[in-house]
């Protein structure tokens, strides 16, 4: 564990808590893409299948359990409790356009052709594009609530911090995982446009609105 990875995990945790807080306080999931949340639940489910077969640390296990539980709870809130406020018209990104190619790639490019390893690879590739329905929804609605932009900033920062973690681990532990690094870079690059808008607008107190 290093400071970058810890900060990254905390940023990820913060993002999830911000999202749950937003939905709980406003009793609404307006502006949030349910498809992205479904993809995140799929990411955690396929990545943490080794939850009971391999123990790394208490921290690792509790975080995995929290991520899985919170992702399904978020879906429950969006598609059941606050269903009336779910904006399905603007959440129109086709998830199959992501899941199918990513599934195929996981079969072709992986570290080892074993079920758990292919599912882990699928989860890494899927996570790198899972935010697309959410970014697509923000671009369609042309704006996002300030709390939603904080959620996206924390979520984007988590994988950016993981990139620093991989640089650190490469130089200090000699650890290098090409699949995770490439997917992590793609994931972070997808946020660049948003990061620019967040820093130039939201941090100056303006509302996040995309140029129409």
């Amino acid at each position: 564990m290093n400071v970058f990875r810890l900060l990254g995990d905390m940023s990820h945790l913060l993002a999830i808590l911000i999202l749950l807080l937003k939905m709980w306080k406003t009793r609404s999931c307006a502006g949030i893409s349910g498809k992205t949340q479904i993809l995140f639940a799929l990411v955690f489910t396929t990545r943490y299948l080794d939850l009971f077969s391999s123990f790394i640390s208490i921290y690792n296990t509790t975080m995995k359990l929290f991520f899985i539980a919170s992702s399904y709870f978020t879906i429950f809130l969006m598609y059941s409790k606050f269903k009336a406020t779910y904006d399905s018209n603007h959440d129109s990104f086709r998830m199959e356009f992501l899941v199918v190619p990513v599934g195929g790639l996981a079969f072709l490019v992986n570290h080892e052709f074993l079920p758990l390893e292919i599912l882990w690879t699928f989860s890494i590739y899927l996570e790198s594009v899972a935010i697309l329905p959410q970014l697509f929804m923000v671009s369609k609605t042309g704006e996002a609530e300030t709390i939603t932009s904080h959620y996206l900033f924390a979520l984007g920062s988590y994988r950016l911090l993981y990139i620093f973690n991989w640089v650190y681990r490469y130089y200090f532990d000699g650890f290098f995982d090409l699949i995770a690094v490439v997917a992590g870079c793609v994931q972070t690059i997808l946020y660049c446009d948003f990061f620019y808008l967040y820093i130039t607008k939201v941090l100056k107190g303006k509302k996040l609105s995309l140029p129409a």
């Binding site: 990820h12 391999s54 991520f67 995982d177």
Partner: peptide, 10 residues
């Protein structure tokens, strides 16, 4: 290639 036998990151 050294297979990453266990993924220790979240």
């Amino acid at each position: 290639e050294d297979v990453l036998d266990i993924h220790d990151e979240l």
